[in-house]
Design a protein around this nucleic acid. Structure first.
Length: 570
RNA sequence: GCGCCUAUAGCUCAGUUGGAUAGAGCACCGGAUUUCUAAUCCGGCGGUCCCAGGUUCAAGUCCUGGUGGGCGCACCA
């Protein structure tokens, strides 16, 4: 695909004198017009000619230099159509050869991309709101790896801070009223909620909590620390079950606590750069020079303990020193935008040249029809429940549509979880999401199961072809590539996959890929409706089989990038 | 109050660095299966692209000012 575009660009460059890299090719409005379009408006001024005249003129010049491409002037546009045999063979072969690595490139050159994602808080259950960071980060990790970067996925667990003082205090008081070992997360959540309820009428609780956190931060290895350690371990074990279901892995699981012994050096480093000041007894960095009225960054409280920003600065310095990253992606909700702007603001004031490499990959908030998510107020949908219900729904659909499916249970898991994951990656990440059961449990239309279904059908055809002895390996018939004219939409879609991956990674926007997959699936399904693969003339069947194999291969590659399974039957 | 984000069909959303007649899905109506999975396909219905100015040969896209919604704004994370 790219080589045809490059050929066209080079020819236009030669004919007009503009640089080949400046030639921008678009997608024609209608596929019947061609595969690539070049608008001639921009040339009108320099050539002192009307765009349609330029297009007509260029068409004449270019057609002489192409062998497999035809240029047609349509008004102010110059449209290009690649000979179908050349197009289909090139795209199908590269898609099939690419396999799951289709779109692979070495543009990353092994440079490191640190991706900070998921980051749940210890002692709280994961809810639907945690899903987005987890699967966005995992998808970005896979895409960067494909593009030749060396991604470093870090789970920056929220395991530090004054809230743990509260939890420790609550356990000290009421730990024997709940069974933490049996089902740790709900038990810890109950204690946390109780703390907040009772702290209002009992100020000694807050004092105990502060004392506990002070002890934790002092480094003393006593009762408090051992309680904290236990909470952390139990929570991590719980989180891992969810990660396993989602197919998510991390290169490093490092909680905020991991940076504990780096806090002092971090503060010293920032102070040494001369940008800190005292304000009401706290240590801050003024950021009004970064943006008018931007809130200052607080690094140390009046009582001497550290804050979220202090720990994130420590993490940042540590990662920069350890990985010397090309990019650092914080995959964290948009509600924390200011926090990351502040971190970047501190870097700017320190005049650190790697500041632009740090990006906040913000995503919109998940809301329920009844309002904002709140674990404490019980307004919450737990992630495990969402996955379970989707899987149950998938199980029912399978029982109804394909009752003899082998491995029905495993496929239901793949389809149900796939539906949830795909749905969450479907729209632009910055957009807020209203969580609605009927939407996430829907398997029709623009959904993960729709894409999975398209793939399953490609596999089904390949299976039947093999059984009938019609697959290319058996028949050794040369495919009639020219017979795929009607599949041009499918071909062009497949050809755009590498670019979809590239922009998805560059913009840290996996929705480019989900949208791509929906488009390819639509083209493929639409083509199926009007064309038979099996039982046609051998060279036609061979070409169509290759098309089906390639389309399935690209879909599988894309779903794999997203962390969605591709069952071969469903 | 200030800052950031967002607004496209009844609903949920696409719409490349500004380019040809603004596209899907859901819902609703009507069709398609003796043959490769109907979790599909085809057709119909449905639009002052929030409003008002501006820049441009060209604006859903860029700029300015409004309006609605979301998020945030000092010792929580």
């Amino acid at each position: 695909m790219k080589r045809f575009a490059d050929e066209i660009r080079a020819a236009i460059a030669a004919a007009t004198g503009i640089d080949a890299s400046e030639v921008r090719l678009e997608k024609p409005r209608d596929i019947a017009m061609g595969d690539f379009a070049f608008p001639c408006f921009a040339l009108a001024k320099t050539l002192r000619q009307a765009p349609p005249a330029i297009a007509a003129d260029l068409a004449g010049k270019l057609n002489g230099s192409f062998s497999k491409i035809e240029a047609v002037a349509t008004g102010p546009y110059l449209n290009f159509k690649v000979e179908v045999a050349a197009l289909s063979q090139a795209i199908i072969e590269s898609a099939i050869e690419g396999g799951l690595s289709y779109g692979k490139s070495d543009e990353g050159g092994g440079r490191k991309v640190v991706i900070d994602f998921s980051s749940p808080n210890i002692a709280k259950p994961m809810h639907v709101g945690h899903l987005r960071s987890t699967i966005l980060g995992a998808a970005l990790h896979r895409m960067h790896a494909l593009l030749g970067y060396e991604p470093v996925g870090i789970n920056h667990i929220g395991d530090w801070g004054s809230q743990f003082g509260k939890l420790v205090a609550a356990i000290a008081r009421w730990g024997d009223t709940v069974d933490i070992d049996a089902d740790p997360i709900p038990a810890l959540l109950a204690l946390y909620v109780r703390f907040h309820d009772e702290a209002e009428g009992d100020p000694t609780l807050e004092e105990e909590a502060r004392a506990a956190f002070r002890e934790l931060e002092s480094g003393v290895d006593g009762e408090v620390r051992s309680t904290w350690r236990k909470i952390t371990e139990l929570s991590l074990a719980e989180f891992n079950k969810t990660y396993e279901r989602l197919g998510v892995e991390f290169d490093l699981v490092r909680g905020e606590a991991w940076y504990e012994d780096k806090l002092e050096a971090t503060l010293e480093r920032i102070q040494a750069s001369g940008i800190t000041e005292e304000s009401d007894g706290a240590t801050i960095v003024d950021l009004s020079s970064i943006r008018k009225k931007m809130a200052p960054c607080l690094l140390k409280k009046t009582d001497g303990t550290t804050l979220y920003a202090t720990r994130d600065m420590a993490a940042l310095f540590s990662r920069q020193a350890e990985f010397d990253f090309h990019r650092l992606l914080w995959v964290v909700g948009s509600d924390q935008k200011l926090h990351f702007e502040q971190l970047k603001g501190v870097l700017k004031r320190m005049e650190l040249p790697w500041e632009p490499a740090c990006e906040h990959v913000a995503f919109g908030m998940m809301r329920l029809p009844e309002g904002k998510l709140s674990t404490r107020a019980g307004k919450v949908v737990f992630l495990g429940d969402v996955l379970d219900r989707a899987v149950e729904e998938a199980r029912k659909t399978i029982a109804e549509k394909n009752p003899n499916l082998p491995n029905a249970g495993a496929v239901a898991e793949q389809v149900g979880v796939g539906a949830i994951v795909f749905n969450d990656l479907k729209r632009e990440r910055i957009k807020d999401v209203l969580f609605q059961w009927e939407e996430v449990l829907s398997f029709e239309g623009e959904t993960g199961p729709y894409v999975q279904y398209t793939f399953a059908r490609t596999r089904s055809i390949l299976r039947k072809a093999k059984a009938a002895g019609e697959d290319t390996a058996t028949t050794k018939v040369a495919p009639d590539w020219a017979a795929l004219e009607d599949a041009r939409g499918v071909l062009l879609a497949m050809g755009r996959y590498p670019e979809a991956i590239r922009t998805a990674a560059a913009d840290a926007e996996p929705s480019h890929l989900t949208q791509f997959l929906l488009g390819l699936s639509r083209e493929t399904n639409s083509w199926y409706a009007n064309h038979r693969v099996l039982g046609e003339a051998p060279n036609i069947t061979a070409a169509r089989l290759a098309l089906v194999e390639a389309a399935g291969s690209v879909i599988e590659a894309g779903l794999t990038m997203l962390g969605v399974a591709s069952p071969s039957e469903m």
